[in-house]
Simulated scan of single mutants.
Amino acid sequence: MIIYKRFGFDAAHFLPHVPEGHKCKNMHGHTYELIVYVEGVLLQPEGWVIDYADLKEAVSPILNLVDHHLLNDIPGLENPTSEILAKWLFHMIEPLVPGLKRIELKETPTSGVIYEGG
């Protein structure tokens, strides 16, 4: 079974490697939506894969690292495309959440990335 929980955070960034004149070369911000998927068996007697409160507790410190920050200032995120940010988030969350299956990171309501590790 796979369960999920949605999170949100706001952050600024710029993309230093895009061509001059590209709008994303300038600093700008996004309201990101992060969906964390966890796979596992139903634990007994609880009847769940993971307590949503435990999932929130595990993910919140990672989100505090990026929420209302300039992503480019965070080691590993010097070129914070949504793809690089998704990979970074996954690998930060993975040791804290047994059964982490994938994450979905939406940079805008219509654009995002799904990362499944690797």
Rank of each mutant, 00 (worst) to 15 (best):
residue 31 T to W: 06
residue 33 E to R: 13
residue 35 I to P: 02
residue 35 I to M: 00
residue 36 V to W: 01
residue 37 Y to N: 06
residue 40 G to I: 07
residue 41 V to E: 11
residue 42 L to H: 06
residue 43 L to H: 05
residue 43 L to C: 09
residue 44 Q to K: 08
residue 44 Q to Y: 08
residue 44 Q to N: 09
residue 44 Q to F: 12
residue 45 P to V: 00
residue 49 V to H: 00
residue 49 V to Y: 00
residue 51 D to M: 13
residue 52 Y to I: 12
residue 53 A to L: 14
residue 53 A to P: 02
residue 53 A to T: 11
residue 54 D to C: 03
residue 55 L to I: 08
residue 56 K to L: 05
residue 58 A to V: 06
residue 62 I to G: 00
residue 64 N to K: 15
residue 65 L to D: 14
residue 66 V to F: 11
residue 71 L to C: 02
residue 72 N to A: 14
residue 73 D to V: 07
residue 73 D to T: 12
residue 74 I to D: 03
residue 74 I to Q: 04
residue 75 P to R: 11
residue 76 G to V: 09
residue 76 G to C: 13
residue 76 G to Y: 09
residue 77 L to W: 03
residue 78 E to C: 04
residue 78 E to N: 08
residue 79 N to T: 05
residue 80 P to A: 08
residue 80 P to C: 08
residue 81 T to V: 02
residue 84 I to V: 08
residue 84 I to C: 05
residue 86 A to H: 04
residue 86 A to I: 01
residue 88 W to F: 04
residue 88 W to A: 14
residue 88 W to S: 14
residue 89 L to H: 03
residue 94 E to G: 05
residue 95 P to E: 09
residue 98 P to M: 07
residue 99 G to R: 02
residue 100 L to A: 12
residue 100 L to D: 08
residue 102 R to N: 12
residue 102 R to Y: 11
residue 103 I to D: 11
residue 103 I to L: 13
residue 104 E to Q: 14
residue 104 E to W: 13
residue 105 L to W: 06
residue 105 L to K: 02
residue 106 K to N: 12
residue 108 T to K: 00
residue 109 P to D: 15
residue 112 G to L: 05
residue 112 G to V: 05
